[in-house]
Amino acid sequence: MIEVKGLCKRFGANLAVDELSFTVQRGEILGFLGPNGAGKTTTIRILTGFFPPNEGTALVGGRDVLEDIMAVRAMIGYLPESVPLYSEMRVGEYLHFVGRAKGLSSKQAKQEAGRVIEAVGLGPRTGQLIGQLSKGYRQRVGLAQALVSDPPVLILDEPTIGLDPGQIVEIRSLVRSFAGHKTVMLSSHILPEVEATCDRVVIINHGRLAAEVDLRTEAQSGAGLRLVARGPAEELGRLVAAVPGVGSVEPLQPPPGEADAVGFIIQAGEDQAVRGRLAKAVVEAGCELLELAPAATHLEDLFLRVIGSEAAADKEAA
């Protein structure tokens, strides 16, 4: 549904997007990740036709953003990161305006406004001035305007920023409900959120594609357990590896301030009971168990590894 090939965008001497290529399948929810300044927003702005690329092509639904931007825009619902809204308008009035601007008739626009207000739970705020809404409700209005006219492609830049945990869960399940019939490109910094919502992840850094991960297959492997204990390192290592159910054991840097502690990352598969056995084994051996918890999530790990290795490469180059 979205096809980006060899995309380049320069701002003066600064190369914001550098030979970026990726695709998003119809009905797929794609996580679009990268550190700040990686070129995420620039890529998104090229897709919505806010400015053209210097090189490369971007197709949305088979239409080129350079040649047929009006057709592309008609297919996209977009929520920018800063959620820019007209603060002097009322919620219902604004969404009606959005429908009209998207080319609906007045009657259709009214229907659409009602539908999206329902979808994002804005019912009681319909008559309120946008300027007086809380951050969470503004965010919902932003999401609502993207949904007006039911576009097949949604591009959401940090949709849950500034929301409370309850609202985050609601918005997440709303986005999740689009899976299969809408193509969603979700840019976010909140990695657990991406893991919970997205089918696939594209990580970019310095405007280049850094990694592409299919969460549907990768997520199953799990991230393992993190164990920190105080005691003789070698003996602990042997002890832990001998616990039934434990797969592989990797040593881990002990946390700062506890130099005498020893840490491990343990892969134990789906077997939950292994945690109890591990704790028991450590304590029975006369060592102090300091920490036993699920290790950092897989995506977080991957993200930091990808970004970290690039940063290290940059340092060497410099």
């Binding site: 919505t48 036709g49 009006m70 057709a71 825009r73 008609a74 977009y78 920018p80 820019p84 809204l85």
Partner: peptide
């Protein structure tokens, strides 16, 4: 300045 132009131009509006 407020960025509403970016959103307005993401609609099929020239």
């Amino acid at each position: 300045k407020s960025g509403t132009l970016e959103l307005l131009l993401s609609y099929p509006v020239s």
